[in-house]
């Protein structure tokens, strides 16, 4: 079982530094998780480390493909507020 990183990743290196399994590697356009090495931190930590430090909502998925940090969970910005603000900015 393995977690994965998707395209919203901003390449901040935070997950790379905290992974206990050295499963995360630098790649273009964004960091990736080596599924063969990822243990989801089982046996090492209570929570998967990459998903515990990642600042970007939605960038890390669990083994089932679900977002571990869904919209609003990290920034505290309600998703509808974010959508509204972005729509306003794009309309300019």
């Amino acid at each position: 079982m393995s977690l994965s990183i998707i395209e919203s990743c901003v390449n901040c290196w935070a997950c790379y530094d905290v992974c206990p399994s050295e499963a995360i590697y630098e790649a273009a356009p964004h960091f990736l998780i080596d599924a063969k090495k990822c243990t989801e931190c089982e046996g090492d930590y209570a929570d998967p480390q990459c998903a515990s430090i990642c600042p970007i909502e939605g960038a890390i998925l669990d083994a089932a493909g679900e977002s571990i940090n869904p919209p609003g969970s990290l920034t505290g910005i309600p998703p509808e507020m974010m959508e509204k603000a972005m729509a306003e900015i794009q309309a300019r």
């Binding site: 901003v10 901040c12 290196w13 935070a14 790379y16 600042p55």
Partner: peptide
Amino acid sequence: APACNIQCHYCNRKYD
């Protein structure tokens, strides 16, 4: 130093 260990409400980590 791209990685951060906290989130501040005045910061957005899409820093580029």
